[in-house]
Design a binder for these strands. Structure first.
Length: 803
RNA sequence: GCCCAGGUGGCGGAAUGGUAUACGCACAACACUUAAAAUGUUGCGAGGUUUCCUCAUGCGGGUUCGACUCCCGCCCUGGGCACCA
């Protein structure tokens, strides 16, 4: 008897699919191939090819979308399901430094490993369209996009505090700072100001919020994006000082409470403090507080349980509403980079202000009643707070204003392994764009690329590369030596897939027009705020400058879903240090790719985090063996005689419907369970063969199984001698008429509790059911002598007698 | 503190107003076997007066003929953001 041997059949079919180019997407223009077919663009986040290899978490989300891709192909769509490498970045650079290798060499090795691993799982990616962010032919266009931002005035230089390790003499990314200390040497991290390229994403804040209503993202994703952008409407109000001509501008969302404002608070970094220090009587103490606040790491400042602050003596502010003099405080609970870095404190109506006022014994005056009507606000008394907002702003000569939490995007990195920023600095002409014909500005190949000890990018040390000529005036000039962040390459890669080998444009209008927008994009929740937002922004920008066709709209993704994490045993994150990492290669080797795929779909709801359970993997493998043995046995009979054939026919139609719907709703776990129930139903111990069903039933089983376990389905398709390749068949239809059987099971309740069940004719009316039910042996005694108050009847489902 | 997701058997989970515990794992018994593995069959929320009844979906209320599901309040777990004026 033949035995299920996944290791053998999986390799075999992977080769066939690849040789016959089964999953290569047809491009527009090849009218014969795409005519009459609707495109469907499915995108999964391309991986960062780390040295650790593929994670079982990658496998879970890629399997899910592979199932969607395979099903949509069977439904006749021209599916684009591409894969590539987001390969620039710090871990590769650090690993290369440690091992004394070139980052490019490490990247090549890692992508080769990842590709091999992904191929071993039988994903139906179109490998012919692969992109790699570190390929000069790719990053030429990443640089080109940056130049468009620069030319549009959306890129600018600004001084930004970076994390600085004084011992290693190196700027650190946030992720390299652990609990305020340098990840490498444990030294306390300091702040150091450095000029950085910034991108004005805030200019797009409003559109990034508004347009979210036009796309089909999971609700929690929409909420998180909106919260991150954090739009709040309010007003800017100037407070005069009693002793100085400067004013303090505050931002508030509650101008209606202005009469209750009993002090001002400014951030320690507020520029005014330095200006008015001569007037401040306790400047020494204030200065001490400021330097203490500045020296605190972000973490410390955030972790404060109790608010601290210091009053500025010798100078007071004047509440513009009632002209009263009020004290000014410096406190580090007010942050400099939101609003104006100064607030008007209304302790009666703000918890933080209240806490602060209690501590420093300040006035707490209530100005709004519970019903939203103003009191203690002179001529505004009795007014509704909504009307009062506008009136009071008007009264004090304030200005309505909108603030965002979103900040501009720091685009410079002082590392080697990233895209060089294609700008040249000329003493006469300032910053100049590299000419487009000179793109890409390739990363120079050098031996030494360690970060420098003065905080400059390693590229700064390569004089031959740095020294160049000004594109405008041809005098000696220097290249920008900072490189771009990881996000630069990943925020437009989905465009490149549509036309990945184009060397004239980032992608042709024709290809973009055909494939874009992305129909379905799945990724991790952790990318909701950064990658997802950045790429939406870049797409909108490209739309604005006409780099992508207007017809495709100004949102890149129609639908966005997210997956849950695969956790280690016991529900904790998989990590090397905990020793609970599951290697997909090992699972494939031991159980097979189809087992891994189905297990990861069956383990639980797709959007929830689920711990890995090796015992569960064994169960899935048993399920696949069961299918294999069933079909092999089935093949040996010409005709199966069984009383259950009809029943199976009905079940298979129901299952086709359910599996199809579940895939679209990402309910893969229940789809697998429906397949299990179906497979179990092929067994009939009362029939001579022990089986039931027809060859056609097996055919349909294999078809709906194939997106989940493509190798097994393909193998059994061949065993059954069905025509062609399973992967190229049409998704089966189902006959809904079969579901409506003659008899239905009716639930009988008394006072909402189940008391009996009977089988009745489909469509039986209430009157007849009542007659039937009231005479039932189990029911009759229970209602005897009791008053029937009400009878609830749900046709074909339930009858509830209320007594 | 705010936002989001979740809390159902020994475990992963199913059911989004109508038979709670599908499917799988684990466990137990039986069959096959010299034996074991594999496979198959059966059982498997708790309790009881056991052809049946009662109680169970984090806790407490409510709406409803009927609530895991909807509403109000609370507790716990996970994730995100964090003094955002």
């Amino acid at each position: 008897m033949k035995k299920y041997n996944p290791q053998k059949i999986e390799k075999k079919w992977q080769k066939v699919w690849s040789d016959k180019k089964v999953f290569e997407t047809k491009s527009p223009g090849l009218a014969k191939d795409t005519a009459g077919k609707k495109k469907f663009y499915i995108l999964v986040e391309f991986p960062y090819p780390s040295g650790d290899g593929l994670h079982v978490g990658h496998c879970r989300s890629y399997t899910a979308l592979d199932i969607v891709a395979r099903k949509r192909r069977m439904q006749g769509f021209n599916v684009l399901f591409p894969m590539g490498w987001d390969a620039f970045g710090l871990p590769t650079e650090n690993y290369a430094i440690k091992m004394g290798l070139q980052p490019a060499v490490v990247t090549k090795k890692n992508t080769d490993t990842f590709r091999k691993q992904l191929k071993s799982l039988g994903f139906s990616f179109d490998w012919s369209r692969q992109v790699n962010t570190t390929d000069p032919a790719y990053y030429k266009w990443t640089q080109w996009i940056f130049l468009q931002l620069f030319k549009s005035g959306l890129a600018y230089k600004d001084k930004i505090a970076i994390n600085w390790c004084p011992k290693d003499k190196i700027g650190l990314d946030n992720e390299e700072v652990v609990a305020g200390k340098c990840e490498r040497c444990g030294t306390v991290v300091e702040k150091k100001e450095k000029e950085q390229w910034m991108i004005k994403i805030t200019k797009y804040a409003d559109r990034l919020i508004k347009d979210i209503d036009n796309v089909n993202y999971l609700e929690k994703i929409k909420i998180q994006q909106k919260e991150w952008i954090g739009r709040s409407e309010g007003a800017e109000i100037d407070f005069s000082l009693n002793n100085y001509e400067e004013k303090i501008k505050v931002f508030t969302t509650r101008p209606d409470t202005l009469f209750g404002c009993s002090f001002l608070v400014v951030a320690p970094e507020h520029a005014l403090l330095e200006k008015i220090k001569d007037k401040i009587e306790n400047w020494q103490a204030v200065e001490k507080y400021i330097s203490k606040a500045k020296n605190k790491s972000d973490l410390e400042r955030q972790d404060l349980k109790e608010k601290t602050g210091i009053e500025i003596l010798g100078i007071k502010a004047i509440n513009p509403a009632n002209k009263k003099e009020i004290p000014i405080f410096v406190a580090d609970y007010v942050v400099i980079n939101y609003g104006t870095g100064a607030i008007m404190a209304v302790p009666a109506h703000d918890d933080r202000d209240f806490e602060f006022a209690k501590k420093y014994n300040l006035d707490i005056k209530s100005v709004i009643l519970d019903n939203g009507v103003l009191v203690n606000s002179e001529q505004f008394n009795g007014m509704n707070l909504i009307d009062a907002k506008n009136k009071i702003v008007e009264f004090v000569g304030g200005k309505k204003s909108i603030n965002y939490k979103l900040r501009d995007w720091v685009f410079s990195r002082q590392h080697y392994w990233g895209e060089p920023i294609p700008l040249i600095y000329c003493e006469k002409c300032n910053w100049q764009a590299v000419a487009e014909k000179d793109l890409p500005v390739e990363l120079p190949k050098v031996k030494k690329y360690e970060p420098t000890d003065n905080g400059e990018s390693p590229l700064a040390g390569i004089e031959k590369w740095v020294n160049t000529k000004c594109p405008k005036c041809n005098s000696p000039a220097k290249r920008e030596t900072d490189t771009m962040p990881n996000w630069a390459g990943s925020n437009w890669y989905f465009l490149r897939y549509t036309d990945s080998k184009n060397n004239k444009e980032l992608a042709s209008a024709k290809a973009l027009n055909y494939f874009m927008p992305v129909d379905w994009y799945n990724g991790g929740m952790e990318h909701t705020t950064l990658h997802l937002l950045y790429s939406r922004f870049i797409f909108k920008f490209l739309y604005d400058i006409g780099a992508v066709p207007k017809e495709i709209g100004n949102e890149p993704y129609i639908k966005r879903t997210s997956h849950g994490m695969v956790l280690g045993d016991g529900g904790i994150k998989m990590s090397k240090s905990k020793g609970n990492v599951i290697n997909p290669d090992q699972v494939v080797k031991e159980f097979g790719a189809d087992t891994l795929r189905i297990y990861e779909m069956f383990m639980g709801p797709f959007d929830q985090s689920i711990p890995w359970d090796t015992k569960g993997v064994i169960g899935t493998r048993r399920f696949l063996e069961k299918i294999y043995n069933l079909v092999i046995k089935f093949e040996s009979y010409k005709v199966i005689k069984s009383e259950k054939n009809n029943e199976l026919e009905i079940l298979i139609n129901k299952t086709i419907k359910k599996v199809g719907e579940d895939i679209e709703q990402m309910k893969f776990n229940t789809a697998v369970s429906a397949l299990m129930i179906l497979v179990n139903s092929f067994y009939d111990p009362t029939s001579p063969s022990g089986l039931c069903g027809a060859r056609d039933n097996v055919k349909n089983l294999l078809l709906i199984l194939s997106p989940f376990a493509p190798h097994l389905a393909e193998e059994l398709w061949a065993e059954m001698k069905f025509k062609g390749m399973c992967a190229k068949q049409s998704w089966p239809e189902y006959n809904e008429k079969l579901f409506t059987s003659e008899k239905v099971l009716l639930i009988i309740q008394i006072n909402g509790k189940v008391r009996d069940k009977i089988s009745v004719n489909n469509g039986l009316m209430q009157k007849e059911v009542e007659k039937l039910v009231l005479e039932l042996e189990k029911i009759k005694p229970q209602i005897l002598g009791k008053e029937i108050k009400k009878i609830i009847f749900v046709p074909n489902k339930l009858i509830n007698i209320v007594i």
